[in-house]
Design a protein around this nucleic acid. Sequence first.
DNA 1: GTGAAAGCGCTAACAG
DNA 2: CTGTTAGCGCTTTCAC
Lengths: 350, 350
Amino acid sequence: MAVTLGDVARHAGVSLATASRVLNGSARTVTEELSAKVRASADALGYLPNAPAQALARATGATIGVLLHDVADPYFGAIARGVGDAAARAGLLSLVTSTDGDPERELHAIRMLHAQRVRAIVLAGSGYTDPDAGRRIDEALAAYRDQGGIVTAITDHGPGYGTVLPDNRGGAAELTTALLGLGHRRIAVVTGPERMRVAQERLEGVLEAAAAAGLGGEEVLVERAEFTRDGGRAAVARILDRADRADRAGGAGVRPSVVVALSDICAAGVLAELRERGIAVPEEISVAGFDDIPLATDLAPALSTVRLPLADMGAEAVRLALDPAAGSGDGRQVLVAAEVVLRASTAQAP
Amino acid sequence: MAVTLGDVARHAGVSLATASRVLNGSARTVTEELSAKVRASADALGYLPNAPAQALARATGATIGVLLHDVADPYFGAIARGVGDAAARAGLLSLVTSTDGDPERELHAIRMLHAQRVRAIVLAGSGYTDPDAGRRIDEALAAYRDQGGIVTAITDHGPGYGTVLPDNRGGAAELTTALLGLGHRRIAVVTGPERMRVAQERLEGVLEAAAAAGLGGEEVLVERAEFTRDGGRAAVARILDRADRADRAGGAGVRPSVVVALSDICAAGVLAELRERGIAVPEEISVAGFDDIPLATDLAPALSTVRLPLADMGAEAVRLALDPAAGSGDGRQVLVAAEVVLRASTAQAP
DNA sequence: GTGAAAGCGCTAACAG
DNA sequence: CTGTTAGCGCTTTCAC
């Protein structure tokens, strides 16, 4: 049914090999005359290469895989876009898998991508810290690499992988310092699940800056949450309830004057909960996020955050994968700067 | 290098055919004894099927393609997530292509997906109305279908395609009616580019409801914009500038009392522009959007909009593609209801 | 129920 | 520079 290379070759009166050479690039060269004939036949017949056949013959496909938590999440969506665009520029298609951060599903996704013989796998959201799940995933990744696959990561996944390294720690530290500069002395941090490397790095940045400014452990409340809107909402609710209970028990002013959510999505939930409780932001409590997702500036109030060039990071991960010369340092790393963006959700401490 | 089916067969002491039958399903049955042996060998050796080879032999791949404007856009991101999940449930991987609505890129993407021999193509964001570009795209799609491909669409693409049909027109009409009920009599509509079918349908819904309520052409201002934040922002700026100019020229009260942006992203831009101009929402002007993207409720103020079950729509499109019995009506359509959600951005007309 | 063998469409030596 | 040919790994008749 479909037009094959053979059909084109016959129609052009050349051999299969020649047709292949002109249509699907090759080192060897073909005379312009035959070349033109083949091209003419190809589009007269409406030839479209059979990618699986090419992948089989070449032992590598024309696709690139992306592993992330959720494409619908603005953070990952932007990365997926960057990966997709860079892949397209290289003539590749991108396979996107949303795993919700579930190690079992990540493992399965990696196997599927491996089976597809994708040219490379970009790890965008698999920042596990859990060694157990990590081992099996590493094995799957190793098997893939042993067969010529390339793995590249956004956020550290250990040495050996080309890595795009956003300055999570530095950005978080800078943000914290800025907040401290506004006079805040009691700060609540809504961080992500322990297994997420980004969450850990960002948390460390906050803690580090707080400690450097002489804040003690009691002045920095850390609350874990999923990196989702509801996670942020619930986390801030717990923080406030606890503070209020302490207040009633005699303490005073134990409420934090600022809450730093380590992801914008989370911060959106924090804002929602605060609004619902009638707590004015930033008059009573300041709020900051991280990532600077596209809608951050449209939240109520406009969210102060740390900007990361998400799409570029995705593109960079692809470049690292496809270009053996890209990246520097022994782990082939690309460092990405984070930039503090102060908007309306943060103000001088009351 | 890689472990092949042949290796497994040899290791298990059976033929290639038998190994294939047990590992990659088939109508024929194999004794439990051999079956077990093969499975044991397979995972002793760490066998992973070669998807391209399977695709070549079977003449169809284990992937599904999604064509959309931009994965990073919440509307499409949610759809992509739904498609990806449904695909995963069917054991398939999903290929995502962002085209920014550019017909040339859409055409190219369709060809790439066809070349990959994807099992189906889900058209999520190709609602062109422009017949010129449409023709070439239809041809590419037809060629794909002639070779056994299945095309399914979200939003109407003409008969012949299985279609998931959100009630754009009805939702827009209902929203408009609700606005009219709040006393608004001068309404501005920020719609999308002419080539986008969704934009047209939604616009028609608004116009229809307005006409039914006896509003004349002068009371409904229509402004086109790209369906992006900046598009919405610029559109509302044009609307206001024009109204203000008219005001100065002697007219009075020509400013609309409500602006309906036919996409939430657009509405976010509208809100931003209004905020910048110091116009209070909803006190001076009400604003409404469409889609109910996840962050709609977190905008400033919380956005009134029309909810569409985006992820479900994506999943439904996949079901339509994979299950020949799915969908009803001659065009195999699945109707999806839209629900008006009134939040803080709309209020009684001043 | 199981195996042998013929492709699927293309690439890449290898000759000429 | 061009053509011949042997696979790539798997599925699938077709015999046994």
